[in-house]
Amino acid sequence: MMFLRLLAGLAAMVPAVPASAQNATPLFSSDAPLAITLTGPMSALAANRDGDSRWAATLAVTGERIPVQLSPRGITRRLKEICQFPPLRMDLPTRPTAGLFAGQRTLKLVTYCRRRDGHAQHLLLEYAAYRIYNLLTPLSFRARLANITYADPSGRALITRPGFFIEDAFHLAQRTGLERPRTGDMVPRSSLSAAHAARMAMFEYLIANLDWSMRGGPEGEGCCHNARLLQRPGQPGFVPVPYDFDFSGLVDAPYAQPPAQIPIPNVRVRNYRGYCLHNAEALAAAGEIRTKRTEIMTLLASIPGLSPGSLRKARAFLDPFWAQIATDATVRARILSNCVR
Rank of each mutant, 00 (worst) to 15 (best):
Leu311Gln: 15
Arg334Ile: 10
Ala227His: 07
Arg49Phe: 00
Ile207Phe: 01
Leu145Thr: 08
Ser302Gly: 07
Thr25Arg: 12
Thr25Gly: 05
Thr111Trp: 07
Ala98Cys: 13
Leu79Met: 14
Ala32Pro: 04
Val340His: 13
Ser140Gly: 15
Asp246Ile: 10
Arg115Tyr: 12
Pro26Thr: 15
Thr106Asp: 09
Gly155Phe: 14
Arg312Trp: 06
Pro153Glu: 07
Gln22Glu: 13
Ile82Asn: 05
Tyr150Arg: 14
Glu221Val: 15
Met297Asp: 14
Ser248Gly: 05
Arg270Gln: 09
Ala60Arg: 14
Ala128Thr: 14
Ala197Ile: 09
Cys223Ala: 13
Gly222Asn: 09
Asp252Met: 12
Asn226Ile: 09
Thr137Tyr: 05
Phe165Asn: 00
Ser71His: 07
Thr330Ala: 12
Ile296Ser: 01
Ala56Ser: 13
Phe238Gly: 05
Thr39Tyr: 00
Thr160Asn: 04
Ala120Tyr: 05
Phe245Glu: 08
Thr330Gly: 14
Ala143Pro: 04
Thr176Cys: 05
Asn279Gln: 15
Glu81Ala: 04
Val14Tyr: 10
Ala316Asp: 12
Leu27Glu: 02
Gly40Asp: 05
Leu45Glu: 04
Pro218Trp: 04
Ala146Arg: 10
Gly274Thr: 07
Leu70Met: 15
Gln104Ala: 03
Ile289Met: 15
Pro258Arg: 14
Arg268Pro: 02
Tyr275Gln: 07
Pro96Glu: 05
Gly63Cys: 12
Arg180Cys: 09
Met1Arg: 13
Asn134Gly: 14
Ala21Ser: 15
Gln231Pro: 00
Gly51Ala: 03
Leu172Lys: 05
Asp91Gly: 12
Val17Lys: 03
Ala11Thr: 10
His122Thr: 11
Arg161Glu: 02
Asp211His: 06
Gln121Lys: 14
Pro138Gly: 09
Thr176Asp: 02
Asp152Thr: 02
Arg315Val: 12
Gly9His: 13
Thr62Glu: 14
Trp212Ser: 05
Thr25Phe: 08
Ala286His: 08
Asp244Lys: 06
Val110Cys: 04
Asn48Thr: 11
Leu123Phe: 14
Arg273Val: 06
Asp252Ser: 09
Glu81Val: 11
Phe170His: 06
Asp117Thr: 15
Tyr112His: 03
Gly222Lys: 06
Ala169Gly: 01
Ser302Ala: 12
Val340Ala: 09
Leu6Val: 03
Met214Ser: 01
Arg334Thr: 12
Ser191Met: 05
Leu100Pro: 00
Thr160His: 03
Ala169His: 00
Leu107Gln: 00
Asp168Tyr: 10
Leu206His: 07
Ala194Glu: 03
Arg116Leu: 04
Arg131Pro: 06
Phe238Ala: 09
Asp50Trp: 00
Ser191Phe: 02
Met13Pro: 01
Arg332Val: 11
Leu206Asp: 03
Phe101Met: 01
Asn48Glu: 11
Trp212Cys: 04
Pro72Ser: 07
Phe3Trp: 04
